[in-house]
Design a protein around this nucleic acid. Structure first.
Length: 420
RNA sequence: GUGGGAGUAGCUCAGUUGGUUAGAGCAUCUGGUUGUGGCCCAGAAGGCCGAGGGUUCAAAUCCCUUCUCUCACCCCA
């Protein structure tokens, strides 16, 4: 038997209402905040991601779905959206059309990781990017936007964490300070953390090994070594967040794995999913655009994992999804009336109503059970003496009341159903 | 890539000192008199017990191999 590829999932009809709810709310709120949808191809030239995200990152060095096409070009299924949006921004000169471009997306992403709770190989993100402005109010807006959307799904157990990574020079300076602090402890660090000492010291803060955490407790913090401008920016972001009553925590240990971040970074975490608790992550990237060949332009964005949000919603039972309904189910008593029932069904559908009938010619009881199962508001019944006298019965399935209609006045029924 | 757990009906799971035609609940289908749903009742259908090999008179049950799913590390959304 052929099965779906590891780490991919089918979204079955019964799953769709939750997905629609997420997607609809995302679109509505994004657009209220002034963001316009953008769509980019599922694959890009590999170089876009290796240059954008960073050659040394895990995403680029071991998680990308890359292949060579027939022309010999190395192509990669997009593992994240920011680089793709920036590419489109540069390619179409969007910065020339307006100073500030605010876009959002809902799209599948691909990373070849070992699947687990809240982690798939094809997963879906929604997110936003704002290119062209570095005002701290925009940093705050990103966080407010993400918070409002995610909070809107009824989730309770959420935490917002923010931090600032400063500008590269102050970060580099801090890295050396951190290395100095860690040098004497090097032999006591876990193997993973020892490796990170050279490649990405900051990430040692993320270590889940207790002894590492013990050592890191005494470590100097990046926030205490920020340059004045970055610190000022960060303080203003916090002020704007306060005006919007966002319950954030400053987490000086919040380090994000993508190379392009500068200044503000943030995450929204949930306690009701597994260990992959980050529902959303983002930050400012003021150097990425020129790094990818565009004119120097500040940018900020976030991405949120739809599967993770759905997982949290399931665990908190927070999404109220109403059952799908049928406007009308058409039944017939005598099998000879099958064609008439069919014609009526088509007529109702063409009138814009959600109509169904029994394709397999089953008993009245079976038809009624089906109508009930489909959550039909009304059942129309053809047959018997009524039909012989030019009448049909309309049964209200909520209160079981039945009403007789003239067979020539289907429009009356249609109007009645539309009014419901 | 490294560990732990699990694979029996569509779903959730019972089922070992190895022993007759492998079970339950839910879901499905059909009925419970002549034309009517939800509750209830009855019946039916549905399984090479993940796959391959081995031990045995006998394997869902024991051993080996393999595949898949799952959780965690790692990393991130």
């Amino acid at each position: 038997m052929i099965k779906a590829i590891k780490g991919t999932k089918d979204t079955l009809p019964t799953d769709i209402p939750s997905w629609r709810k997420i997607e609809d709310d995302v679109r509505r709120i994004m657009e209220n905040f002034g963001y316009y949808e953008i769509r980019t191809p599922v694959f890009e030239e590999t170089a876009l991601f290796s240059r954008g995200i960073g050659e040394a990152t895990d995403i680029v060095s071991k998680e990308m779905y890359s292949f060579t096409d027939r022309s010999g070009t190395s192509i990669t299924l997009k593992p994240e959206m920011t680089a793709a949006v920036v590419r489109a921004f540069i390619e179409h000169n969007l910065g020339k059309i307006q100073n500030l471009n605010k876009v959002y997306y809902i799209s599948p992403m691909f990373r070849q990781e070992r699947p687990q709770a809240g982690r798939l190989r094809q997963f879906h993100q929604f997110g936003a990017e704002a290119l062209g402005c570095n005002d701290p109010s925009l940093d705050a807006e990103m966080i407010i936007l993400a918070w409002d959307i995610i909070r809107g799904f009824g989730l309770k157990d959420l935490t917002v964490k923010i931090n600032s990574l400063g500008i590269p020079s102050s970060r580099e300076n801090y890295r050396n300070i951190l290395r100095e602090y860690l040098s004497p402890h090097l032999n006591n660090l876990s193997e993973d953390s020892r490796n990170r000492f050279d490649t990405n010291v900051l990430r040692i803060f993320d270590s889940k090994v207790e002894s590492d955490q013990e050592i890191m407790k005494g470590a100097p913090l990046l926030l205490d070594h920020l340059d004045e401008e970055s610190l000022d920016h960060f303080n203003k972001v916090k002020e704007y967040l306060d005006t919007a009553e966002i319950p954030y925590e400053v987490d000086p240990k919040l380090v994000r794995g993508l190379d392009y971040y500068t200044n503000t970074t943030f995450e929204i975490l949930s306690n009701s999913v597994g260990s992959q608790s980050a529902l959303c992550g983002g930050g400012r990237y003021d150097l990425l655009i020129e790094q990818l060949g565009g004119k120097t332009t500040p940018g900020i964005g976030f991405a949120a994992g739809i599967e993770r949000i759905l997982l949290a919603c399931e665990n908190e039972n927070s999404l109220d999804i109403s059952l799908p309904q049928k406007d009308i189910y058409i039944t017939r008593i005598e099998k000879e009336l099958q064609k008439e029932a069919y014609a009526l069904c088509v007529r109702f559908r063409r009138a814009g109503l959600n109509a169904e009938y029994d394709y397999s010619g089953r008993s009245v009881k079976a038809q009624m059970r089906e109508a009930n199962k489909l959550n039909a508001k009304y059942v129309l019944m053809l047959g018997g003496d009524e039909y012989a006298n030019g009448k049909i019965l309309l049964k209200n399935m909520r209160n079981s009341e039945q009403e007789e209609f003239d067979i020539n006045s289907i429009d009356e029924i249609i109007n009645k159903l539309r009014g419901v």
